[in-house]
Design a protein around this nucleic acid. Structure first.
Lengths: 149, 149
DNA sequence: CCGGATCCAGTGCGATACTG
DNA sequence: CAGTATCGCACTGGATCCGG
């Protein structure tokens, strides 16, 4: 892994990469690798939750999504969903009615990612208590340590 | 799923939750669920990359980690790794030497998560080109659409 | 070598109001 | 209903200095 790509700073991938792309690999850990940018774009609270929600619930309209991913503002929802659409992960379908109805769902590409993201959500829901417990122990050890003596 | 917990705003989990905790579930999608806080804390670029790096490479010292996760500042690395330690995901071992040597590695709890996170890194490295291609197409369609006529 | 503390610019993000 | 535009604050996160 980490075979390294062209390693240019700018976006140099025209979309067609031929077969040799198979022996090349993006490196998420490299600061200037294009894949890092992709990763960084996805690695935020709202994007991950939106992906997970679309994966769990299925297609949803804008307001449903906003209720589903509780706490997200319209601005952030719009922005995140736009990015996901731009990245070819999510499809945005506008039904030309009045009032307008816009539906979002996962594209095949996005489903593969969302699937993995959802497992992280699952993990947190299953192991959250352990994390919180550890956190309490940690804080307690820090504040409790210096009171004595 | 989404069975809902006590739903208090504050941190109300003392660490011991008895057996009934099994029928309860955290809900990552609920704005005020404690698990959401945990999720939000982990859902950032650096934390995810650090977990993935520790999973792939194994235990590393501070400076190794900084080189491994290229682009991270010392401040962010310290901060992220502290949070991960606090959450019981990562172990920080100080070797009392001079110069000091500090080693980080995954705790069992953290390994379970890191494993899943790593699959996301893999996904990005494998499908990054598709994302970038989609992105180009999207941008092109937007700017190319209004030039004509 | 590890990392805490401080300073400060940049911006993420929420609140609000307006459009189609 | 879905989305854009503007404003403003708070927080992020990098650079730097310092201490163990």
């Amino acid at each position: 892994m980490v075979t390294k790509v062209s390693l240019e700073t700018g976006p140099v991938y025209p979309g067609a990469m031929s077969a040799q792309q198979q022996d090349m690999a993006f490196d998420v850990f490299a600061a200037f690798c294009p894949s890092r940018e992709v990763f960084a774009e996805l690695a935020d609270k709202w994007s991950l939750l939106i992906l997970a929600s679309l994966y769990r619930v299925g297609e949803q309209r804008f307001s449903e999504l906003q209720r589903s991913v509780s706490g997200v503002s319209r601005k952030m929802l719009t922005q995140s969903v736009r990015t996901l659409e731009r990245d070819g992960l999510v499809r945005r379908t506008v039904h030309p009615e009045v009032p307008p109805r816009v539906v979002y769902d996962l594209l095949p590409l996005g489903r593969g990612l969302a699937e993995r993201v959802a497992t992280i959500g699952d993990w947190v829901e299953q192991n959250g208590h352990a994390v919180i417990a550890a956190r309490c122990g940690f804080d307690e050890a820090r504040s409790g340590g210096e009171t004595g003596s």
